[in-house]
Design a protein around this nucleic acid. Structure first.
Length: 376
DNA sequence: AATAGGAGGAAGTAAGGGTT
DNA sequence: AACCCTTACTTCCTCCTATT
């Protein structure tokens, strides 16, 4: 299949509807009006950039209506919907585009006209006008934290075990790391630790993480070998395990200082769907969390002022939901998600100010900014 | 049955190391 | 240096399921 449409090349992850719209350009007469009812996802995700490029520069974009994600338009599909309307002519100077949101196409809940020249193909078109914050703010969360998604085990039921299961299978403790339960079972926003580094929680879980080759396991840890053998027929054949060696080895994710839940639904106006968790334990976390590891500058500051962790954690939880949501994406039915890079895009000048106070030597502070300015 | 949260497949990229 | 291959993640997408 050709990925080249109107000169732009599309990512292999692009939804078919984008191909459809772009290819139909060849069928449309000059000056005709095109109206599309389609997923609104292209406005949030990376694969949508070439389509947005097309809508900005090749045709005259008249209106985009986004249905509210909570109001699913099709009974049998959890997809967020939009109506995209444009005329096949080059856009005039100072052209205004109507962006409407919520309600119906004829009676939207919100309507705003935006200058075409203020829209960019590489930013999100989700009506939160995050472009303003982008231009005025300098530091982002990714300058302060390395953000990673939690580990994908390949089979949580097999690799994440309760203490009873650990005992029943006689698994050696040196291959077990504490791991947090999923957000559903985690009520607290702060994880306390016992002297061994195990989190103090009702639901105690351990990740089976052994990197020894199979022969070594068979020779030295017969009970573990026996347990692994029981997963060889199904677990080891799954996509993730199949491409790892040995198949039961796990990704490397040290216990993070801070975590963010990876998906959720808006609960109320002032409490967003994402929670930030302060972790004092040695527990790692699975891919239902995003893990925030302090970068060098923050690590240094934390050594001098450990209480800073709590301040930053409070700051993160105090972020207005709107700011966080505008970086993420939303799926039909109102399920919000945040990918690591999207969390990293959140403006973090507030944290830089907190850090600034901890730097007695001004040159160190300068170094902090220099560090991010010289990154490509 | 609805809600809220969950899971992992699979393509993609980056980095490292060996070979031509 | 250019190329190839492997490994180790990263990102995006879509459907699933436990709890109420």
């Amino acid at each position: 299949m050709t990925r080249s449409t109107s000169g732009a090349s599309l990512s292999g992850l692009t939804g078919l509807y984008c191909y459809f719209l772009l290819l139909s350009d060849a069928w449309a007469s000059e000056g005709c009006v095109c109206v599309w009812l389609m997923p609104s996802e292209f406005m949030d995700v990376n694969y949508g950039v070439p389509l947005k490029e097309y809508l900005l520069s090749r045709v005259t974009l008249l209106q985009i209506h986004r249905f509210a994600s909570e109001e699913v338009q099709f009974g049998d599909a959890l997809v967020s919907s939009a109506v995209v309307c444009f005329r096949k002519t080059l856009p005039p100077k100072n052209h205004l585009v109507n962006f409407s949101f919520g309600g119906t196409l004829n009676t939207p809940k919100m309507l705003q006209a935006l200058m075409l020249s203020n829209l960019r193909a590489d930013s999100k078109w989700n009506g939160h006008s995050s472009d303003e914050t982008k231009s005025t703010s300098c530091a982002r969360l990714s300058d302060i934290f390395e953000i990673k998604r939690g580990l994908a085990t390949g089979d949580n039921k097999f690799f994440i075990l309760a203490p009873e299961q650990v005992r029943a299978h006689g698994l050696p403790s040196k291959f077990l790391k504490p791991i947090l339960p999923s957000p559903r079972y985690l009520r607290a926003l702060e994880i306390k630790s016992d002297p061994h580094g195990n989190p103090i929680l009702e639901r105690k879980l351990f990740l089976l993480d052994c990197r020894l080759p199979e022969v070594a396991v068979q020779r030295d840890y017969p009970r573990l070998a026996e347990y692994l053998e029981s997963g060889k027929h199904d677990v080891a054949k799954g996509y993730l395990c199949r491409s790892r060696s040995p198949w039961y080895s796990q990704e490397n994710r040290p216990a993070p200082l801070l975590l963010c839940t990876y998906m959720g639904r808006s609960r109320t106006e002032n409490s967003g769907p994402f929670r930030f968790i302060l972790n004092h334990s040695k527990a790692t976390a699975a891919n239902v969390y995003l893990l925030l590891y302090p970068r060098a500058e923050l690590s240094q500051a934390l050594k001098e002022r450990p209480e800073l962790a709590r301040t930053i954690w409070r700051w993160l939880n105090g972020l207005p939901p709107k700011v966080v949501l505008s970086e993420g994406r939303v799926y039909g039915g109102g399920l919000h998600k945040l990918e690591p890079r999207e969390l990293g895009n959140i403006p973090a000048d507030g944290i830089v100010r907190l850090l600034g106070a901890s730097f007695k030597n001004p040159s160190r502070q300068l170094h902090f900014f220099a560090d991010r300015d010289f990154r490509p």
